[in-house]
């Protein structure tokens, strides 16, 4: 499905982009949340990279489940269970239906929505994840999918937060990009870059 070398490149690319953008993500979160998104994601990335060789030696579904578990156990904050659930659910779905990546991805994003009791349009990472699912289903190219992700993240700026700590701000959450949406777009860009 994916070679060990390719998987290693993807994990390292995602980790690098998180480390590189940690301060930006934390600043976005400070504006409308509790200001720890970058720090938390960086901790999760470090925990995954610490087990890199064990992870890439596994088949993709098992690798995803290990990554998900590490994120759940190390990230803290709401992003740990959300990104952790995404990886765990995608791993589970891919072991069941390895030939239907788009369907597996949609069901995994649905699992994230259930975990966060949220849906598209509430100024969360789902505002990026669902457009990505649509792009994958429509067999868009990787660069097109990256563009979709960044555009979707940018659109959260004008939205009012309806879930999470940012929702406490009400209308004052408008005018800031959602940190989870931004990190999702960055991750997609990193994955695409490593796959191209």
């Amino acid at each position: 499905m994916i070679s060990e070398a390719r998987l290693r490149a993807v994990v390292l690319a995602v980790s690098s982009t998180i480390v590189e953008h940690a301060e930006e993500l934390t600043a976005l979160d400070a504006a409308i949340g509790d200001g720890d998104h970058g720090v938390n994601m960086r901790r999760g990335a470090a925990a995954v990279v610490a087990e890199l060789e064990a992870i890439v030696a596994k088949p993709l579904p098992e690798a995803l489940k290990t990554i998900g578990t590490r994120l759940v156990m190390t990230v803290g904050g709401a992003s740990g269970p959300l990104y952790g659930t995404l990886c765990l659910a995608l791993g589970k779905q891919l072991s069941g239906t390895p030939d239907d990546f788009a369907g597996a991805l949609r069901r995994a994003v649905d699992a994230v929505a259930a975990r966060g009791k949220s849906r598209y349009g509430q100024k969360t990472l789902l505002d990026v994840l669902y457009p990505i699912v649509d792009a994958v289903e429509a067999r868009r190219t990787l660069p097109e999918t990256v563009a979709v992700a960044h555009a979707a993240a940018a659109e959260t700026r004008d939205r009012k937060a309806l879930r999470g700590r940012a929702s406490f701000l009400g209308d004052r959450s408008i005018g800031h990009v959602d940190p989870g949406a931004r990190s999702s777009a960055l991750i997609v860009e990193a994955i695409a870059g490593a796959l191209l």
Partner: peptide
């Protein structure tokens, strides 16, 4: 929020 999500997890 995060306390609830992490507890569910």
């Amino acid at each position: 929020g995060g306390a609830e999500t992490n507890s569910e997890m």
